[in-house]
Design a protein around this nucleic acid. Structure first.
Length: 684
DNA sequence: GAGCACTGC
């Protein structure tokens, strides 16, 4: 089970290290400096304190300050406090700091509130969807999700209550981060007093600098680099590429356990299936492990687990044991586990890619970027020096792309473009993207918006388009909320809209329990398909007192169901604001399904004899997702609409409802081109 | 008979 690693740079193949040595003799390269500091008290401010005056000077002098500092160097917690002390929050001004994720916004706000010595929600607060723990008068430092701040621009286009806006974790390049940067650049032209801080953990921050200085004066923007306390992480590479990194990861973990000192191990793989395989290899190999070895406690970590299962990875390892966490990318940025000393990096990640030509999203397994590999390695050095083992050769690392392409270049732009138009940015050619999306994606989105009557032939928003842009749901869902007036089923469509927004309402466990869960789920099954099944589940949830134990007994996720209740409440307010009646269809499922088609009319499919479907647009072979009630059943009419489509190994459709083919024709098939498998031509 | 990287409003 010996693994070949070699030292890059100074020694290559053929050197003294190029032999079948064990891992421990071969971990070498001094890593770039990884920051491990987490600032918890006033006393620990030092690492960025020495930059304090420089930072404040830069914010004062330049419109845009780009701050580069590793995760945990204190920029997120300390910088807003310095700005407040320096007077940037006086005269009712607010300092905003955006985060790509909800948990980050809430937890950072909590920490800063206690550092400042205030109650959370007073001087320091946070705003995320469904939770506004801030005070319009008192709050000076406001942490928020970037989506939330972007939404605020729809109401206050100049974001006038803020004196400084810090866009944190900008290197992650979420769609909303990119949209915000574009809008903020525009806002700064009209309001030059607004100070912008773009904070990034990677050195590609120069691209942000170029972005802001491209069409502005040279002294508009500057970069400040921060340092933190460092724990070195050594990086080792495989000499040869491996065919099966999942097995190699298992072997290496056992090897580390035998030969290295204490410290937990974190393995990065791409998905649930690989994680389960890796854990299986491990249990197969365990009999070969010497009896005196440290006991390894293997733990899986991925988003599909329940909260309780996820919490297990944070429990400290028992005395004399070592945790082995086999994780997806969730542990790269979303979740931080202390005590990791060894990282094993497969070098791969699954990302969602959008193909604008086919309008299909797919989940692809691709090599990570250099930035991502660095971030993963850094997970070994948070509490002490560590080692990162990359399961690929050094040359392969050199060949990696520097960063992952920003999300805006690989996603469906329908919603972002609708929102930009709502902001009055009609000429998309003039919008200054940080990274321009493919022209094809923009065209595809415009075409979809036109077909759905959200924009007119002049490219401007229609009256309904303006309203739909304000609704925090996908266009198709918003469209059926508006059409529900016609079909008199607002009550039910509202619920379905909320249920499709939360994913994984049903919790089907593995193994024998899964069969029982399956039986529970059948109690909610509606003949017509998944949308009505979701409606049944929601109604039952509210009828039985919204209880957590009831959910447990009926294979439902309490967390998901509670979220659906919140979302429904929020959407109901939008409907009331737009004077849309909230009437019940009184059990008339036909009317309700016709209303569903008004949103999903472009997502039609026809059942063919072999159990698969063909898409109305493009005549593509589609498979029902195994979680669908139509997975095994033939729809009587032969026609369905679906909520989602995704390519993995097969092209699958999820959340499916049976319809009549002429309902599709009612809803504007006129927009579809000839020869693309129109309803008429596929009908027998 | 069989499956889901991660977010966000």
């Amino acid at each position: 089970m010996s693994l070949k690693f070699w030292k890059p740079g100074t020694t290559g193949p053929g050197s003294s290290l190029d032999r079948d040595t064990e891992v421990e003799g071969n971990v070498v390269q001094s890593a770039p400096a990884y920051t491990s500091l987490s600032v918890q008290s006033q006393r620990e401010r030092l690492p960025i304190f020495k930059h304090r005056e420089k930072l404040l000077y830069c914010v004062e002098k330049y419109g845009v300050t780009i701050v580069v500092g590793q995760t945990g160097c204190g920029k997120t917690t300390q910088l807003p406090q310095y700005l407040m002390e320096a007077g940037w929050a006086s005269d009712g001004n607010v300092i905003a700091c955006t985060q790509p994720r909800r948990v980050a916004a809430t937890s950072v706000a909590g920490r800063v509130a206690s550092e400042v010595g205030t109650t959370l929600g007073d001087e320091v607060g946070y705003t995320i969807r469904f939770e506004d723990v801030s005070d319009k008068q008192k709050t000076r430092i406001l942490y928020m999700t970037d989506g939330m701040l972007f939404r605020e621009t729809l109401v206050d286009p100049l974001l006038s209550r803020y004196s400084v806006i810090m866009i944190d974790e900008a290197h992650e390049r979420s769609v909303y981060t990119d949209l915000l940067l574009g809008v903020l650049k525009k806002i700064r032209r009209k309001r030059p007093s607004l100070r912008l801080i773009v904070s990034s953990a990677t050195l590609d921050a120069t691209s942000f600098l170029e972005y802001f200085t491209a069409s502005m004066p040279e002294d508009e923007a500057t970069i400040v680099s921060l340092e933190g306390r460092l724990y070195p992480v050594e990086v080792a590479y495989l000499k040869e590429p491996v065919a099966d990194y999942t097995r190699k990861a298992a072997e290496l973990s056992l090897d580390i356990n035998l030969k290295q000192g204490p410290g937990d191990i974190l393995v990065f793989l791409t998905g649930r299936e690989e994680i389960e395989n890796c854990l299986e290899y491990l249990s197969d190999m365990l009999p070969t492990v010497p009896r005196n070895a440290t006991r390894l406690v293997p733990l899986a970590l991925h988003a599909g687990l329940t909260t309780e299962e996820q919490l297990a990875v944070f429990e400290p390892a028992e005395r004399g044991t070592r945790k082995l966490i086999v994780s997806t990318n969730i542990a790269e940025a979303s979740v931080t586990i202390e005590g990791i000393k060894f990282v094993v990096d497969s070098g791969f990640v699954k990302i969602r890619v959008y193909n604008p030509t086919t309008a299909l999203a797919s989940l692809a397994t691709v090599p990570t970027s250099k930035a991502s590999a660095t971030q993963r390695a850094g997970r070994a050095g948070r509490t002490s020096p560590g080692i990162c083992y990359r399961l690929y050769p050094h040359e392969a690392f050199e060949a990696l792309p520097p960063t992952t392409p920003p999300e805006v270049t690989r996603t469906d732009l329908t919603t972002p473009i609708l929102q930009l138009k709502s902001l009055g940015i009609d000429n998309l050619m003039k919008f200054e993207w940080v990274s321009a999306p493919p022209a094809e994606s923009v065209l595809r989105a415009l075409e979809g918006l036109f077909a759905a009557e959200m924009i007119g032939e002049d490219g401007r928003l229609t009256a309904v388009g303006q309203k739909v842009a304000e609704c925090p749901v996908e266009m198709a869902i918003a469209r059926m909320l508006f059409k529900s007036k016609e079909y008199q089923c607002g009550e039910e469509v509202l619920t379905i809209a909320a249920m499709t927004a939360v994913q994984d309402a049903f919790v089907i466990r593995d193994g024998a329990q899964g069969a029982l869960d399956e039986l529970e789920r059948r109690k909610f099954t509606a003949e017509e398909g998944d949308h009505l099944t979701l409606l049944n589940a929601y109604n039952a949830f509210t009828r039985y007192g919204r209880s957590s134990s009831w959910c447990k007994n009926h294979a439902l996720s309490f967390r998901a169901m509670s979220r659906a209740v919140s979302i429904r409440g929020q959407l109901k307010k939008y409907m009331q604001r737009f004077n849309l009646p909230i009437e019940s269809c009184q059990g008339d499922a036909k009317r309700l399904r016709r209303c569903l088609v008004s949103g999903y009319w472009r997502n039609g499919a026809k059942w063919v004899g072999d159990g698969t479907f063909r898409s109305v647009r493009g005549n593509k072979v589609l498979y029902a997702h195994p979680t669908s009630v139509l997975f095994t059943r033939k729809p009587r009419s032969g026609w369905v609409i679906f909520h989602e489509i995704e390519e993995t190994k097969k092209t699958q459709i999820r959340v499916i409802t049976e319809i009549e083919s002429d309902w599709l024709i009612e809803q504007g098939h006129r927009y579809e081109g000839k020869g693309s498998g129109s309803v008429g031509s596929t009908e027998q």
